[in-house]
Each structure stands twice: as structure tokens, then as C-alpha cells.
């Protein structure tokens, strides 16, 4: 199989989709492993950017990120292949559950295993956030934004859309009025 081909995109994202328990954020450790470290299809910074766009566009974040990376690698068809890959495992699992097994979630062993999996997901996501922090938070302004957004969303459940819009406006203003530091970078 050709690395970075359509089939590789499909299978890599199928693996990611099949191993992600919980929402789009639980996918982050898998993406960091498979996409950033193993395949080098994107950097940590790009992952953050895709999550940012995924927050304010319609649809499921997992799907959005898959489309982005597939598109980056192989254009439109690549985006479609990666997306189909990421939804394929859950599609077949649910199909099976809908057709055959009804009380899957009520099984005692399943419930205990899931409680364990939730702990692992929590540890994995904490780890993923630490990696992102190293890439995404670079100066005092970054730390201030991080703290503000963290507190607002934990205690006031502020909608992510407002966070994203606010951060964009702030970034544009900052770029206009404090251009010295940024100007040197790019």
C-alpha cells in the first residue's frame, strides 16, 4: 500500500475513528500519534488550527479535522476518503448494534471496561493538552488568553463559537496595533 495514498488516508482515519471513545477531543491523542508523529501529515500547530475552524463550522469536529487533513494531503478526493474512513468504524458498529444487540450498554462488564476506558481517555487528553500547550501558548498574551478562555468555559460554559470569534478579533487587533514582534516572525 502506498503511504499517503487514498487507501492509506482511508485506513489511517478508520483506525483513528475506531479507537476514539468519546467526543472529538478524545480523538486528539490518536491524531497526534497517527497523523503528526507517524505519518507527518500535519504539525501540532495545524491540528490546533483545524480544531479552531471545526469549532465554528457546522458538523462534527472529528469529520472536520479528517476532511482538512485528507484535503491537505490529496485534495478533494483525499478529504472525502479521510472523512469516510473516520466514520466507517462507528457506522458498522452501530449498524451491528441496531440490528443484533440491544442492551449492549447495560452489560456489567461493558460498563466496568468503559469506566476504565474513560480514565485512560482522561489521561491521554491531559497529555495531549500538555503537548498542545507547548506549541500553542508562546508568550504572556497566550497565557492570558488561555486562562481567560479556560475560566470562561469551565465556569460560565461560554459557547466555543464566541471564544473563536473573540480570539480572531483580538488577534487581528493585536496584529494591527502591536506589529513589532509579529512582524519579525513572518
Amino acid at each position: 500500500m502506498k503511504k499517503g495514498g487514498y487507501l492509506d488516508l482511508f485506513l489511517t482515519f478508520a483506525r483513528i475513528g475506531g479507537l476514539t471513545f468519546g467526543g472529538g477531543y478524545a480523538m486528539l491523542p490518536m491524531l497526534q500519534k497517527e497523523v503528526v508523529e507517524n505519518r507527518k501529515w500535519a504539525t501540532e500547530e495545524e491540528l490546533l488550527d483545524y480544531y479552531a475552524v471545526g469549532q465554528c463550522t457546522p458538523g462534527i469536529i472529528a469529520v472536520n479535522v479528517a476532511t482538512f487533513i485528507g484535503h491537505k494531503e490529496k485534495g478533494v478526493l483525499g478529504g472525502i476518503m479521510a472523512t469516510l474512513g473516520v466514520v466507517a468504524p462507528s457506522f458498522f458498529i452501530i449498524l451491528l448494534l441496531a440490528a443484533v444487540i440491544r442492551n449492549f450498554a447495560d452489560n456489567v462488564y461493558v460498563a466496568h471496561a468503559l469506566a476504565g476506558i474513560r480514565v485512560a481517555v482522561a489521561a491521554l487528553v491531559v497529555n495531549a493538552v500538555i503537548k498542545l500547550w507547548k506549541k500553542g501558548v508562546k508568550d504572556l498574551l497566550g497565557i492570558a488568553i488561555f486562562l481567560l478562555v479556560f475560566l470562561l468555559s469551565v465556569f460560565l460554559s461560554l459557547s466555543p463559537i464566541w471564544v473563536v470569534i473573540g480570539a480572531i478579533v483580538l488577534g487581528l487587533l493585536y496584529g494591527q496595533f502591536a506589529p513589532k514582534k509579529k512582524g519579525e516572525e513572518k
Binding site: Y25, L48, L132, W133, L141, G142, I143, I145, A167
Partner: peptide, 12 residues
């Protein structure tokens, strides 16, 4: 530039 710390916080 400012979105990245904000999104990191959302994920956190």
C-alpha cells in the same frame, strides 16, 4: 496567533 491559545484552553 491568538486562536491557538484560545483553542488549547477550549480543549483543556
Amino acid at each position: 496567533y491568538t486562536l491557538r491559545p484560545a483553542v488549547t484552553a477550549l480543549i483543556a
